[in-house]
Structure formats: C-alpha cells, structure tokens
C-alpha cells in the first residue's frame, strides 16, 4: 500500500437548510484503489459525492486531494486537477452527438494526439459507442448513456474517478456489462470511488468499503470482510 492517500476526507458535513444529510464523515482513498461507499437511499451518499465534486458547498470539514485542500475549488477546476465524476442519472448532453459528448470529456485538454489515443481506448471499452458516434446522445438507451458517461469521464484522463450509482435504472444484464468495464478500468490502475445502492456488486468489485447510515459512516473494512459481515448481509445484501 502506498503511504500517501490520494483523497482524504475529514469531518465532512453537508446540510440542506437545517437538515444534516452528511454528519461529519471521514474516509480516504489510496492511489490505485477502488473503494465502495454503500448505504440505503437517503443515507447521504450522493450528498457526499456532490460535496466532493464541488457541486454543493459542505458546511464543514475538509477534502484533501493530493495533499491539497480542494473544498473551496470551483467545480470547473476539479477536472483539471484530475478528478472526474460520472453523475447520478448519467447527465449526458442529449443534443450533442456521442463523439461530441466524449470531446466534452476532454474539454480541458490540448494534447490532440493523446486525446485521439484515449478516444480509441474508450471506443475499445465500449464498441457500441463507436458504432453510434454520430448519433445524438439523447437517442441512446439508459445503459448506453451510462457507458457514454463513463467514457466521457475517462476522456479527461482522471487520476480519481467518482462513480455515482452507475447501476441505477439499468436492466440487470446492462448492470453486469457496466461493472465489467468498471473492473477493467480499475485493473488498469485507476483510483475509483464507487457509490452504489447495489451493495453486493459494489463490494465484489472493490478492495475496501464504507457503509453509510443516516449521514454517518458506521462501518469500514476490506470489501471481502464486509461481504461476510452479518450486519451488512442483513441490511444490504438481503439475507
């Protein structure tokens, strides 16, 4: 294990008006690691991710990335620092073509040759996208849009990939496909924070996991241990 974590979150608090959605959570992600953050609906997972991706201002706590405090950084700066988010509900640009959506992923980059290489890589991961390159993203199925959103995030050549509920609203076979690709990307050495309601799938793919309940992290362990933890099995794995 590398000494210095890529991301350290300490005492993060997020509130909507008076309601605390995240009540001071602390966790970290090491380089090259895939970490799952699981929990029920409304546990505060997405609020956590929104704070990390700077779409929401936390009321307290610190987010250190590569040793640097990023809690005040505007969202459009994050991607330049190497953080890419695949948002909940995918957020593709419906009236841009697939190729344009992917080009948007590389918006901050100027290295034309490397961008072309990354595009080939993404098309290699998702051949479906290449076939439909010229189509508007709005015409794609939900699963294809999820592929596009992941591909788009990869186009920024991130150091840290944040995935928000990639399985949401997808047919089981599509979920398997998406996770296959996520594992492939992880195997290439990408650092990933995965937020998922599908706890089994998330833990089976990750090295470590955090369990969130009512805005707090209540459990953390190696993913394989969490899979066998009776409390997790009862609450999240439906056993």
């Amino acid at each position: 294990m590398v000494a210095e974590p890529l991301l350290i979150v300490e005492g993060l608090r997020v509130a909507y008006g008076g309601i605390q959605a995240v009540r001071g959570i602390t966790f970290h992600i090491n380089p090259g690691e895939m970490v799952a953050l699981i929990g029920a609906n409304g546990a505060g997972k997405t609020s956590t991710l929104k704070a990390l991706s700077r779409m929401l201002d936390p009321v307290g706590g610190s987010i250190r990335y590569q040793g640097q405090e990023i809690v005040k950084l505007p969202p459009h700066r994050l991607v330049r620092e190497g953080i890419a988010l695949v948002p909940e509900g995918r957020g593709v640009f419906p009236r841009l073509t697939i190729a344009e959506n992917l080009a948007m992923g590389a918006f901050t980059r100027d290295d034309k040759a490397d961008i072309a290489a990354d595009l080939e890589h993404v098309y290699g991961l998702f051949p479906r996208l290449k076939e439909r390159e010229k189509q508007l993203a709005g015409t794609l199925s939900g699963g294809e849009q999820q592929m596009l959103a992941i591909g788009r995030a990869l186009m920024s050549r991130p150091k840290l990939l944040l995935l928000d509920e990639p399985s949401m609203g997808l047919a089981p076979i599509m979920v398997q496909k998406i996770f296959e690709v996520i594992r492939m990307v992880a195997a290439e050495g990408m650092t990933i924070l995965l937020i998922e309601q599908n706890a089994r799938l998330a833990l089976e793919s990750s090295q470590r996991g955090y369990v969130m309940e009512s805005g707090e992290i209540t459990l953390t362990d190696e993913a394989s241990s969490l899979l066998h933890n009776p409390k997790v099995r009862e609450a999240y794995l439906g056993e």
Partner: peptide, 13 residues
C-alpha cells in the same frame, strides 16, 4: 443543455 455537468467537464459557465 446541462450547465452543472458542463461545469464538471471543466467548462467555466
């Protein structure tokens, strides 16, 4: 089409 996500791509709105 989506100002929030465009921001995530690095676009300064």
């Amino acid at each position: 089409q989506n100002p929030g996500v465009a921001g995530l791509m690095g676009v300064n709105a």
